[in-house]
């Protein structure tokens, strides 16, 4: 691939990742961000050289249950006021969000 094609491909990768991450990239930042991203990607690509004993057959981790019993629950309402006070928009104690289902 030509250098220009490389740059275009890496800009489109960054734009796709940004869309997945719900971040908007201003068009005048895209090229610089793509270059930074490529520099980091080249750095972590060192892992390609690393041969691990587990290559090909990932070992299963030794799993055990780490969840505690659901005990000592708070009484309902203990934290409501403080949590609700941080809501950007509310109706009483309910969090207000945009309507996302349309009946049209």
């Amino acid at each position: 691939m030509s250098e220009q094609a490389d740059t275009e491909s890496s800009i489109s990768t960054v734009e796709r990742l940004a869309a997945l991450a719900r971040i908007a990239i201003p068009s005048d930042r895209a090229e610089a961000l793509a270059a930074e991203f490529e520099s980091v990607r080249a750095y972590i690509a060192q892992l390609d050289e690393l041969t691990l004993p587990t290559d090909g057959a990932p070992a299963l981790p030794a799993l055990h249950n780490v969840l505690r019993d659901d005990a000592d629950a708070y009484a309902p309402g203990t934290w409501t006021e403080e949590i609700v006070s941080a809501f950007p928009a509310k109706a009483g104690n309910a969090l207000s969000v945009k309507k996302i289902i349309s009946h049209d």
């Binding site: 990742l17 940004a18 991450a21 971040i23 961000l33 990607r41």
Partner: peptide, 10 residues
């Protein structure tokens, strides 16, 4: 933002 993009990538 850079690290979010990198994390999304890997």
């Amino acid at each position: 933002q850079r690290r979010i993009l990198l994390g999304t990538f890997v």
